[in-house]
Computed example of a mutant assay.
Amino acid sequence: MTASTSRRSALRLGGAAVAAAVAVPVLSSPAGARSHGFDPAPGSDGVGDPLFPTLGNGGYQVVHYDLTFDFTPVTYDFTAVVKINAKATQDLSAFNLDTDGHTIDAVAVGGRTADWALSAGKSGQELTVTLGRPLHRGQAFTVEIRYHGNGKAPRLGLTGWKFGTDGGFASAAQSSRADTFLPCNDTPSDKATWTFHIGAPQGYVATANGELLDRTPRADGSTVWHFALRERMATELIGIAVVKGTYLYGSSHRGLPLRHIVPQGQEDRYGPIVARTADHLAWLEAKFGRYPFSVYGLHIYDG
């Protein structure tokens, strides 16, 4: 991949989808958006987070990510589409998303093909999207990015991919490596809700953050696993995986659903370990307060 690439291409959407947890109007013009002087400018480089000031991008706030991610084990190839619902926090002429190691196939804003450029950034790559129609501060908009790649492809920064002996992968993205899985605003300061649609072939299971909504079988024997996280979460906590694993279930002492994945065929070994999770969670909640998400669990993986 070259350090600087530009192209203009129409976006065609595909893949399985379920209703998004958050509905945001496209390119709406909120009341009073034009009451101030309109002076569009590019979003800032970095959001000024107190711990990670150079991470992420300014000019907008993400509301929701919807990720369709189809992975092929052993070869580590994937194709993906991410749809981002966001709101401009300034009059905006262009904005950046963090990405690293992906081939960008198409970008659209509000359903319209957008100009974009790919360049080297501080910790990975920057996907710069130039708006044909600048946005007013407070205006809601959508971004759709179609891309593909390989989990073991070279990256400019550290990778968030972890590989096991089963030919699958698990993500370990803290604190700024979610951009090795999807173009995003990769800073702990910008939290959003999420939906995931993860494709896995026969013999593998997929997982992601949030509640498991459904599984859609496909004619080739593979399955798309649909998850929704309705609480706002930072990109660094993304927890997607495609592995040869077994789901184990339980509940916390206050009734929170627990969902674990352990290596396939090793349920007897790891079942007693994940069974201790309810006690661990109760101890943590006594120290730090109520766990803020709707499901919790462990993923034990040889990677």
Results as ranks from 00 to 15, higher is better:
M1Q: 12
T2P: 07
S4C: 10
P30M: 14
A33E: 11
A41N: 02
L55Y: 09
Q61V: 14
D66K: 05
D66M: 02
T68H: 14
D70T: 07
T72K: 06
T72C: 01
P73T: 12
Y76A: 11
F78G: 07
T79H: 11
V81K: 12
K83R: 15
I84M: 13
A86D: 07
L97E: 05
L97G: 03
D98S: 12
H102G: 01
G124S: 08
Q125P: 01
E126V: 13
V129T: 03
L131V: 06
L131Q: 09
R133F: 03
P134L: 04
L135P: 02
P154V: 10
L156T: 14
L158S: 03
D166E: 03
G167F: 02
S171A: 15
S175T: 14
D179F: 02
T193H: 08
I198Q: 10
P201V: 14
N209Q: 08
G210P: 06
L213S: 01
T216P: 00
R218F: 13
A219E: 14
S222C: 06
S222W: 05
L237S: 01
V242D: 03
V243L: 15
S252C: 04
L256K: 00
R259K: 06
I261T: 07
Q266E: 12
D268E: 08
V274R: 00
H280N: 11
L284A: 14
Y291T: 04
H299G: 01
